[in-house]
Amino acid sequence: MSIAKLENVHKVYHIGKVDFPALRGISFSIEEGEFLSIAGPSGSGKTTILNLLGCLDKPSKGKIFLDEKDITALPTAKLADVRRKNIGFVFQTFNLIPVLTAMENVEFPLILEGQHEAKERQRVTEDILTEVGLKDFLHRRPNEMSGGQQQRVAVARALVKKPKLVLADEPTANLDSVTGEEILQLMLELNQKTSTTFIFSTHDKMVMDFARRLIKLRDGKIESDQKVNKK
């Protein structure tokens, strides 16, 4: 079953009077449980694709399906609901809320969801933070943690509500290579354990090697789309 699908998606940015086509006919489909990397040089359209998949933006042309449902024409508020329920984001710059502790940051999406009792929320939060290896950092604020730790919190935050899709835009770009690898290893483990679908963008060769499927972009078009078979 396809969890997300792009059909001939175009995205044109308007810069003053000039139209700039960032995506020019992108089509692909993602199955549940995939660990997919979108790679390509700077400006090739990686972030744009993730934003569209994350319901943060709308395509200029073409259709986007999430869970086989067409979300292309949904109004803003509905898009926010889709994001809240189905999508977790991991950002290049971690983007934790600076005034909240690790616990509270991870708890925040659950609060937004409003589905859980406070007790249960805390248990779930603690569990996932333990899983990402931050059992001893529950009450640290972001500025009291290293970049790698912050990104672990971010991963936990993206996963805590058990979304269908986790979108990570260059999650390792702000980390040294060892820490970056650790984060990718973590995401891969989580992908295998929970069968959550991961899509991450990168232009780092090392990072691409982690992917089970690699879509290469160039100038807003798919250059190649291949499965990578691992041992």
């Binding site: 609901d81 889709v82 994001r83 809320i97």
Partner: peptide, 10 residues
């Protein structure tokens, strides 16, 4: 922007 990406409504 981050909060909105997490699905908080306007």
């Amino acid at each position: 922007g981050v909060i909105k990406s997490m699905g908080m409504r306007n």
